[in-house]
């Protein structure tokens, strides 16, 4: 049962990657990468039960934190980058 959930999560991550490659806008890609990250957290949590390794949950917590911070960081980076190019265009 855990194996099935893990396989589905891998399929979801694959579909998210397709969207990340297709785009078309920058924000579609960020959204797809965000989905990829949150599903990674779930996959690590499922792997914990699949392999019987109780320390995987700590990794999942850390991954959730890093994923959130990286998405916010990337968004802010592009926000500032676009503001700067707009100012230069003026």
């Amino acid at each position: 049962m855990f194996a099935l959930a893990a396989l589905t999560l891998l399929a979801v991550m694959g579909l998210a990657l397709i969207r990340a490659f297709l785009g078309p806008t920058l924000y579609d890609r960020i959204l797809a990468v965000n989905i990829f990250g949150t599903k990674t957290v779930l996959l690590i949590a499922v792997m914990d039960f699949l392999g019987g390794r109780p320390d995987f949950l700590d990794i999942a917590i850390v991954y959730a934190l890093i994923n959130f911070i990286s998405i916010i960081g990337v968004l802010r980076f592009f926000e500032y980058a676009e503001k700067k190019t707009a100012e230069q265009a003026e």
């Binding site: 959930a5 399929a11 979801v12 579909l15 998210a16 397709i18 969207r19 297709l22 989905i35």
Partner: peptide
Amino acid sequence: FLLGGSFFCLTGAVGLL
């Protein structure tokens, strides 16, 4: 619960495409 969660995750990914 696991089956339902997998189904909703898959639905979301299909919607993403």
